[in-house]
Amino acid sequence: MIVLEGSIPAALTSLLSVVAGLGAIAGALVVVTAPRAFRAVMGLLITVVCLSIEYVLLAAPVIAFIQILVYAGAVVVLFLFVVMLLDLDGSRAESSSRGPVRWEWAIGGTAAFFMIGVCGIYYLAKLPAPAAPAVSEATPDGVQAIGVTLLRDYLVSFEAVAVFLLAAAVAAIYVAHAHGRGEKADPAEPDPAPEAGAAGAAAGKEAP
């Protein structure tokens, strides 16, 4: 399935790419319009999977599967986990969140983004045809090319990502951890609602 070029008629691949693109947009629309967070996560999953199909069509299978690995395997699962965790006390906490939408924002935002999108599409209509990749990624050499570039030209960035993940891990674990020593809730603030206490206790039990 990876060796698409040549083995599958071009019409079919372009059809597939259109379908996947529409799927990605549909997923994104689900994200924005879903009444509940769970559905929004499903929308994200659809978008991610469709985009990775596009990556395969763009002759970049490595990033396609890394995308699925990280997003479907980690990000989406993490989101689902938190959505379910916050729902554990049975109150369907998130369903109350259809709060007032700020309409001035809605109208302004829609107009602005549509303008960006339309201008972009108008101008970009005459982009060049793709250059043939130097090495096809479908071969082991192609995978190797990515690895070599990653560790030679982007060594600093690669290490920087490691530092970033360290910082993110420290921050996330610290913030989400429930029982710190010698900490009190701020007395100047109102007590959290009772169901928040329940959710907090549940979260404390379950969060790894």
């Binding site: 920087a160 970033f164 996330a172 951890h177 603030e189």
Partner: peptide, 16 residues
């Protein structure tokens, strides 16, 4: 890096 660390630092008093 600096942003993600700053998010964590801002929430340092996590009970507040």
């Amino acid at each position: 890096i600096l942003s993600v660390a700053a998010y964590g630092l801002t929430a340092l008093t996590r009970r507040r």
